[in-house]
């Protein structure tokens, strides 16, 4: 009886967005009287950080501090349209829509500022700290709050912008099946190191080493966390989660809560290292691709390959339970020529 160590890797390439009846998202931006910019979206942030990304895209395009941006995802009934946050599309679709809206709002903002400063709008630039200033003459400047007040109460204008990103529907070519289903492809590779107990069949994932090519990383801290949190989910798929034998026939006796539906806890967490490679995508917001869903994918086959490397058992059904490991080891022993 022994603890057997093994190493395996797997690669994944993954589409950004989808192609059903076309894939649009919209964004609207307007300035408040105080010089804040409200980004209205119907896109949902359920913790993945979409609001942060939308605020970054708006702030970068407007030339304003992040603090001036308010992202409002309040209501899908009344907000601008979004297909939803799925298909790893949020950053790509919503980011592009926000940039388009912010460009339009920025243009109006500069026009209002130009009238206040009595200069040409083409000669103005933002300084990133909240001011619009004359190029080459930085003392000629006006704060965004004064711009917003002037627009509202003096010039009678709305500083606002409309944005949409639409991935048009693509029909397959009947002869070849050729089509254009997504907007970009992100790529990744994970190396997993595991330990297999050949007495109990328990697989322990010791470490995961991830390399991700995701276009531009708009927020490297969030990218790393998505990669590692997603990889944790992959470990969960690989060696923990199972609803058999009850699902889908009956939920009456199946795992229905945190106590019964096993996922890795703090002590089952593998050590992770992650490398982010940036190859900006031409159609992405500042070059970003989507990496939402793919982060759970590569760890699973990587763990399966590591199990094979450790003990010679080739498992093709998830999760890789102790029972399946022990049955595989038994089959290997049975196949050995008897001494």
């Amino acid at each position: 009886m022994a603890l057997l160590r093994g190493r395996g890797y797997a690669s994944v390439n993954y589409p950004t967005g989808m192609n059903l009846g076309g894939d649009p998202s919209q964004a609207l931006i307007h300035a408040t009287t105080m010089g804040g910019f409200v980004v209205s979206l119907s896109s949902v942030d359920l913790g993945q950080g979409l609001k942060t990304i939308a605020a970054q895209c708006a702030a970068e395009t407007l030339g304003m501090p992040m603090d001036n941006v308010i992202v409002d995802t309040a209501d899908t009934d009344t907000g601008p349209h979004c297909m939803g946050t799925f298909a790893s599309r949020g950053t790509h679709r919503v980011g592009n829509a926000v940039i388009m809206a912010a460009r339009e709002a920025r243009e109006v903002m500069l026009q209002v500022a130009a009238e206040e400063l009595e200069v040409d709008a083409d000669d103005l630039e933002t300084d990133g700290s909240g001011f619009v200033r004359l190029k080459g003459s930085p003392e000629t400047k006006i704060h965004v709050q004064d711009i917003a007040l002037a627009a509202h109460f003096k010039q009678g204008r709305t500083i606002s912008g409309r944005g949409i990103f639409l991935k048009e529907r693509s029909y397959p070519v009947p002869e070849t099946g050729e089509m254009d289903p997504d907007s970009a492809q992100a790529h990744a590779c994970t190396v997993a190191e595991v330990e297999v107990d050949d007495e109990t069949g328990i697989v322990t994932v010791l470490s995961l080493h991830n390399a991700y090519e995701i276009g531009r990383a708009l927020n490297p801290a969030m990218v790393t966390q998505q990669v590692e949190g997603g990889a944790w989910m992959g470990v969960s798929h690989a060696v923990f989660e199972a609803t058999e034998p009850y699902y889908p026939s009956s939920r009456a006796h199946g795992p229905v809560d945190f106590c019964e539906y096993l996922m890795p806890g703090p002590a089952e967490t593998p050590v992770q290292t992650s490398v982010i490679l940036e190859r900006p995508a031409s159609n992405g917001p500042f070059g970003a691709k989507g990496i939402g869903e793919m982060t759970a994918n590569a760890p699973i086959p990587a763990v399966a390959n590591a199990i094979f490397d450790a003990c010679g058992v080739r498992i093709t059904v998830m999760p890789f339970t102790p029972e399946s490991i022990l049955r595989g080891l038994d089959e290997l022993r049975d196949a050995e020529p008897s001494a």
Binding site: K51, A54, A55, Q145, M222
Partner: peptide, 24 residues
């Protein structure tokens, strides 16, 4: 230290909306 070397993560939109009025 945090794994990324990009400095502290950016504030979220939630935090920004509160901080805005004090700044502007």
């Amino acid at each position: 230290t945090p794994e990324t070397d990009e400095g502290p993560p950016p504030t979220t939109a939630y935090e920004s909306s509160e901080g805005m009025r004090a700044d502007v």
